[in-house]
Amino acid sequence: MLPIAAVVWESRANGAAGFWSVVSDSQAVSALELSLVCALIVAGINAATGTIIAWVLVRDDFRGKSLVNAIIDLPFALPTIVAGLTLIALYGPRSPVGIDVTDTRTAIVLALLFVTLPFVVRTVQPVLLELDTEMEEAARSLGAGEGTVFRRIVLPNILPGILSGVALAFARAVGEIGALILISGNLPFKTQVASVFIFLHIQSGDTAGASAIAVVLLAISFAVLLVIGAIRYFATRHEHAR
């Protein structure tokens, strides 16, 4: 709580008018928008791919499964600046696969997808492991096809796990800087995200301005996390019914 309080305190150094002029600046608004939209897209893609990866790791058997399982966590172990360098090597001007995405919004989404990949996988995996497969068998014996079994039985039970992972991935994506600072190109109104924007303000000695934008970013992120939390609460109402 203390660091967050300190940021809020710092942000009011220039008074309400100063605060407003910083955060309503069109470049700041654009950076905030880009950060939030990219984070939401990344969280959404993660919800699907993370669930699929978790499903394959839990339900399927294949050679090298434990290796894949171990590799999933690597993005966490890598300093994100290194992740950024790696992505430039792979998808930069000298790309061995012939794809150059540097200085584009695609680059931002790709970089964020890489660093947030483990979240949904790791929150869904234990829920899937715990999931009583007899529920699915019971549904099948009652006439439910595989699609219905997934939609009506599996999904409602793993949804809280997916949402937890989505919330973590979103929060991480909003705050990510290391993986983006090199590959995004930091072009104002195009590929400049809020975290990098804040970093530039700090470098130029404007800590109050940086804090003001950080506070807005925090407030919006908090609102998004609250919404995800509310959906999660609704999805688990059977667990706290007494």
Partner: peptide, 22 residues
């Protein structure tokens, strides 16, 4: 034939209740 198409009712030892449904 798949279990869906056999017209049978199955009751499990550990109930297999759909815990997210009333």
């Amino acid at each position: 034939r798949a279990p869906q198409a056999r017209g049978i009712g199955f009751v499990f030892q550990h109930y297999a209740a759909f815990k997210h449904m009333t």
